[in-house]
């Protein structure tokens, strides 16, 4: 019986995270609009878009993998979200955090991309593999500083369990990883810029270069699933960063405040800078953030 209650709680948690992610994307549209001196769409516009895409009467599929691509992507987003505690100490929002650890979550971040790569490739449009090549290359490069940051905090807290990491940061702001291991946080936050794929690193969707890349052939409900996942995945990544570096959250408003602030970091940078070319982006991640990551591991291990 216990497992059923757990499943219901997980469903509630996913619903809240998805809605929160959608509103977050709406707020980002609004912020970008204000930067352009426009009024911008209402914040609930992403929700209307999802209803509209699911409401299409026709959906063209190109084969089984095309069908499964968005499903894998959604599984990646859900997996990332489900194996970490969203709110520390809460029963409803603890998800299945005890079942997994940091490495599993990191695997799920990559998993969705790989599934999408298989699915979008079957669409047959030349821009899909181009976007996937860019996406996977960029992902490999920004995972490097992120992995180094994770190694660093694993040495620091002597564990890979996210709940334990959050527990270790309780009891005041100065216990956050941000202050106890600043180098790891800097490396990870720079890799977050790549993960969120806002402007300097928006190589994958790049509407003016490779018209929206991998999902170019996705239509109707396929696109609806991808959009839902984008919201869920965005909140999952933010929650992960909040848990690892910013002390986690003990209630819902604190969680929303912290994740919103973390997201705004990449949004403001995105609104201010133009897009990198692929090779510029890859080189950027492999240089300074990676060096900072290595430094953080050395500092935490030997000093």
């Amino acid at each position: 019986m216990d497992i059923f209650i757990k499943i219901i709680y997980a469903a509630i948690s996913i619903l809240v995270a998805t809605l929160y992610g959608l509103i977050l994307i709406g707020i980002v549209h609004k912020i970008y609009a204000r930067v352009h001196r426009r009024i911008g769409p209402p914040v609930w516009q992403p929700i209307l878009d999802i209803i509209q895409t699911h409401g299409r009467k026709v959906a063209t599929s190109h084969g089984i993998m095309f069908f499964l691509g968005p499903v894998f992507r959604m599984a990646g987003g859900m997996g990332t979200y489900l194996f970490m505690p969203v709110i520390f100490g809460s029963v409803v929002f603890s998800n299945y955090s005890m079942a997994g650890d940091l490495l599993l979550v990191m695997y799920f971040i990559f998993f969705g991309q790989l599934g999408m790569a298989l699915g979008a490739g079957e669409g047959g449009h030349p821009y899909s593999p181009l976007g996937i090549a860019r996406g996977l290359s960029q992902m490999s490069t920004f995972e490097l500083p992120f992995s180094l940051a994770v190694i660093s905090i694993a040495i620091q807290y002597q564990t890979l369990n996210i709940t334990t990491i959050v527990a270790a940061q309780q009891g005041g702001m100065l216990n956050w990883t941000l202050f106890t291991n600043p180098l790891a946080v800097i490396a990870a936050m720079i890799s977050l810029l790549g993960m969120n794929m806002h402007s300097p690193f928006s190589l994958v969707l790049a509407p003016q270069e490779i018209p929206i890349g991998p999902p170019i052939e996705m239509n109707g409900s396929f696109l609806g699933i991808l959009q839902t996942n984008r919201a869920l995945f965005a909140s999952a990544k933010l929650v992960l960063f909040m848990n690892l570096f910013f002390g986690g959250a003990t209630n819902l408003p604190i969680m929303m405040l912290k994740t919103f602030s973390i997201y705004m970091f990449s949004v403001f940078i995105g609104a201010a800078f133009p897009r990198f070319r692929p090779e510029q982006s890859f080189r950027f991640f492999l240089r300074i953030p990676t060096l900072i990551g290595i430094l953080s591991v050395i500092v935490i291990a030997y000093l």
């Binding site: 609009a33 911008g40 209402p42 063209t60 052939e217 239509n219």
Partner: peptide
Amino acid sequence: MTARFDAFRYGIAGRPTPRQAN
């Protein structure tokens, strides 16, 4: 689409592929 008329405030957005446009 740009600042003067800003059609995005009415939910009108550009879409680069016919598969997604309506």
